[in-house]
């Protein structure tokens, strides 16, 4: 598959940087408000390959491939597109620690690593999730590199992890507690099924406003990563939005990770030791 070539190339250029400078830091807890990226500690039995997006630059950020073999389905999970959305990149860090029994997952935990380090929504080039022009090249080098990685992985599903302030349909313009699927790849039914499953599993009945729902379908009308996945790759993708309203960061991370797990499971990518 294409992804192996991409990973090998990336690892050659930046593997030592990632393994030494970034991965060598502290481990353990993967939640909290500290904006510093925390390198994952993959399960011992899992094959992990690493590489980097924008190697050799200030925006260099690692990615991890966790998987069982080459033959199964592939997913791409992206966190940290917005640097202040802590639960998204903390959940991605945890996903990079999974032991995957079927298929493989390419995880980019800190897509906009400068913004993550600054704990700001936007990086030096502005809002990364408004730079994925539909039908053409993304607007900035970082967006282009990220898109090249996504496209080269030839994914069966792409999951983009975010966090919002309020709740979709309850708090004006906020979009939390919603899964926004692509028009392509049957993602709408995935979003419905996963929302139902996660509501049943972890959202208390008395937290009625926090029940997950499917948001509107993303079909390529805006320059967002998942819009581009739908329009340019014709592949399933889901933009996951958790709310910070009333939810502690640990809960946001747990629920985000669970949603990713169920979404990937719908595409045949199974995690050993499911959270449900």
């Amino acid at each position: 598959m294409k992804r192996r070539a991409v990973l090998a190339a990336g690892a050659t250029v930046a593997g030592s940087v990632v393994a030494g400078a970034t991965v060598g830091a502290t481990r353990g807890a993967t939640t909290g408000d500290d904006p510093e990226p925390r390198p994952p500690s993959p399960a011992a039995e899992t094959t992990v390959e690493t590489g980097a997006v924008r190697p050799g630059t200030r925006r260099e950020t690692p990615y991890f491939e966790v998987g069982s073999d080459d033959s199964g389905p592939t997913a791409v999970v992206v966190g940290g597109v917005h640097g202040n959305e802590v639960s998204g990149y903390r959940a991605a860090e945890r996903i990079a620690e999974w032991e995957v029994t079927d298929g493989s997952v390419v995880v980019v935990p800190w897509a906009n690593v400068v913004a993550v380090r600054r704990n700001e929504r936007e990086g030096p080039d502005g809002d990364l999730n408004r730079q994925f022009s539909i039908g053409g090249e993304p607007e900035t080098p970082l967006a282009r590199s990220l898109w090249e990685l996504v496209a080269a992985a030839d994914p069966d599903v792409v999951v983009d992890l975010h966090r919002s302030r309020g709740i979709y349909g309850t708090h004006g313009r906020w979009v939390g507690q919603a899964l926004f699927p692509t028009a392509a790849g049957g993602a709408t039914s995935d979003a419905d099924a996963v929302a139902d499953r996660v509501n049943e599993a972890v959202v208390p009945a008395s937290m009625w406003a926090h029940r997950f729902r499917r948001g509107n379908t993303l079909g390529g009308t805006s320059p967002l990563l998942i819009h581009k996945v739908s329009a340019d790759l014709d592949t399933a993708g889901v933009l996951v939005e958790l709310t910070e309203f009333y939810l502690d960061v640990d809960t946001q991370v747990r629920w985000t990770e669970l949603i990713a797990e169920r979404l990937l499971s719908r595409h045949g990518i199974e995690r050993r030791g499911s959270a449900i």
């Binding site: 972890v202 008395s206 406003a209 009333y246 939810l247 502690d248 640990d250 809960t251």
Partner: peptide
């Protein structure tokens, strides 16, 4: 409940409804 969602109980329902209503 706000310290940890796992501590959210049905007893929190009235306060939760009031809090959500206020924010809406």
């Amino acid at each position: 409940g706000t310290l940890d969602a796992r501590l959210h109980s049905p007893l929190a329902a009235p306060g939760y409804a009031l809090f959500v209503a206020l924010t809406v």
